[in-house]
Write a protein that binds this DNA or RNA. Structure first.
Lengths: 142, 142
DNA sequence: ATGGGTGCAAAGGATTTGCAACATT
DNA sequence: AATGTTGCAAATCCTTTGCACCCAT
């Protein structure tokens, strides 16, 4: 993944591609494990010593508002982000806390306007909770 | 809604019905607007002067662990709770922040074990975001 | 007297805000 | 110059923790 690609994504979402924004976008496109703010910050600070957490917060929030990333609130303790903007379900493991994509499971379509009694829906998130494959096989020995 | 009913719900979920637990359960059963911790605390403190926020936190978390209530993380800023444990989608209004039930929209069934590639799913939440009827009609004048 | 339940105060942690510095047009 | 962007420090707010007290068995 090159900076050029991240830059293109930003531009196509109507976001002016600054150095910081490109770096952050590039990071979430390359690390598809639903990084938190802290993850992104820690991942970039070595090569980007002046980066501030505030910028990561503001930038990722802005990305999600421009539909350039998905904000995931499946974890009650912290928000994380997904650079893949295709609608797909997420899964959080109650044991290890990791968030996974469940690409094989389909999302319901957005309800049509007359199904919703006047609610205007522009985004859907489907969250599953339980045990991931790793944690469910080791549960017995705990 | 009588305390007796709330107490029954607790017992049937394997929770020992203490005074505080009954009061909290009764509150979320009577106030079906997805109250936050603060809402529950404020709603009960007048008639229950010794109640502590800690107890509300602990109790509601415990309710959700015993499937006596649903923990809703649709709002990135705070958790709220739903006393109705039937699976149903929730909607949050981007403008007013209120959380609504969308009972008319169906939830997808829990995926079967062979659909999930080893993920053991025990809970699903379907969240929608957008504008509620009130906020969408008044948006123009803002 | 033992164990669970409650409540207070303090700690912890995530996120936001205010503002100054900086870059870009 | 004007505008948008970034970054630091401080503030804020939600939630959890540690511990003492209390109540019921």
């Amino acid at each position: 993944m090159e900076a050029k690609d991240a830059s293109k994504v930003l531009t196509s979402c109507g976001i002016k591609p600054t150095l910081q924004r490109i770096a952050i976008m590039q990071y979430i496109l390359e690390h598809r494990v639903h990084p938190t703010i802290e993850d992104v910050y820690n991942g970039l600070i070595a090569n980007f010593p002046t980066l501030s957490r505030t910028t990561v917060y503001n930038t990722l929030r802005m990305f999600s508002e421009h539909s350039a990333a998905q904000m995931i609130t499946i974890d009650e303790h912290r928000v994380c982000y997904d650079g893949d903007i295709r609608p797909h379900p997420h899964f959080i493991c109650r044991k290890c806390g990791h968030v996974f994509d469940l690409m094989s499971i389909s999302m319901p379509l957005l309800p049509t306007k007359d199904e919703t009694n006047g609610f205007l829906i522009d985004e859907a998130q489907l969250y599953y909770k339980g045990l991931c494959p790793d944690c469910s096989t080791t549960t017995v020995e705990d």
